[in-house]
């Protein structure tokens, strides 16, 4: 009932439908529609994943790096990023709470910490993109676009191309527009040619091939030496790192969705930081003190929490499930 009761005059304005101010209501409209956009992306991700359910890359094996540390730490850095974003969400609520009590200095400090948290998050995401694009082990791609990765037979660890590729002489030079056809470009050449990898593979009996196929135990299928030797004949090119067309970690759609979804989310965080900064300076200048209320802080807070909310879902569907 409470929503249908109007407060006195109906037509002269000044009413608040649903007890929410105009600005807050519009922020909620925007958030609902943006939530649907993200849901569309995640549903598309789910679509592609269910379509290739038996060959999809395993996220634990892709995101294993932590800055400044060597070794294999699955999930650790993403978990850290999640904590950072939740923490900055908390400082944002504290800023809103301080705003309700008209405590200007507290609002300033809490907004400051929120912005710092956001910057750390975006920086971490940039680092994660960089690591993902650079790649670590390298792989071969077959004619049908399937990825062949390498494993050391004795230890069961992943083998990088640099561990076994055999340097051969007589390299081909990179095709550039100035020395070849002006209308055809070529990306940077991989560190090893296909021939070098194949020769190195044949010379080193300790290396086995791992295909994209996920077996009963939920691991990627490991071929034996004979199968591996047969399989490597199908390879057509060397892949290092990931971009929109090739992806050494497995299915190329995985990289496409990674760039698209985390990129779109990262862009939201970035614009959230900018909006937070504007409000931050307005608070310092005393705009809301003069206005008599800190509702703008609450509105930008809604946006900031929404970005956190989206990350919670991206974290689950990209890294956990």
């Amino acid at each position: 009932m409470d929503s249908t009761v109007t407060q006195g005059k109906v037509w002269e304005g000044g009413n608040k439908p649903l007890d929410a101010s105009y600005g807050k209501m519009m922020m909620w409209f925007f958030i609902v529609s943006d939530a649907l956009t993200f849901s569309g992306f995640l549903a598309a991700y789910g679509f592609s994943r269910f379509k290739f359910i038996e060959t999809w890359p395993i996220a634990d094996e892709v995101f294993t790096h932590v800055p400044f540390f060597h070794g294999n730490f699955p999930m650790a850095y993403v978990a850290f990023m999640t904590f950072i974003l939740i923490m900055s969400s908390v400082t944002m609520v504290l800023a809103v709470d301080a705003g309700h009590k008209m405590q200007k200095n507290k609002v300033i400090w809490y907004m400051f910490f929120t912005i710092i948290g956001g910057i750390i998050f975006v920086g971490s995401q940039a680092w994660e993109w960089g690591t993902f694009i650079k790649g670590d082990f390298g792989a071969l791609e077959t004619k049908s676009g399937k990825i062949l990765q390498f494993v050391k037979a004795d230890s069961g660890e992943r083998a990088a191309l640099r561990d076994f590729a055999k340097p051969l002489h007589g390299e081909r030079v990179q095709h550039e527009r100035k020395n070849g056809m002006w209308f055809v470009g070529e990306g940077s050449l991989p560190s090893y040619s296909l021939n070098e990898v194949v020769e190195g593979f044949k010379a080193n009996p300790n290396i086995l091939i791992r295909t994209e196929q996920i077996n009963e135990e939920g691991h990627k299928t490991l071929l034996n030496r004979q199968e591996s030797l047969a399989k490597i004949k199908r390879a057509t090119q060397v892949v290092e790192g990931a971009n929109l067309v090739h992806n050494e970690y497995g299915h190329r759609l995985f990289a496409d969705f990674f760039f698209f979804i985390t990129g779109f989310h990262g862009f939201h965080v970035f614009s959230g930081i900018l909006i937070n900064l504007i409000i931050f300076f307005n608070v310092i200048l005393g705009t809301y003190e003069r206005r008599g209320h800190y509702e703008m802080v609450e509105k930008v807070g809604l946006y900031w929490h929404f970005v956190d909310l989206v990350w919670v879902f991206v974290f689950t569907f990209f890294y956990l499930v």
């Binding site: 649903l18 908390v90 809103v96 929404f306 909310l309």
Partner: peptide, 10 residues
């Protein structure tokens, strides 16, 4: 965090 608990039910 987004204070939906305190908003109008509708």
């Amino acid at each position: 965090f987004m204070h939906l608990r305190d908003e109008n039910k509708s």
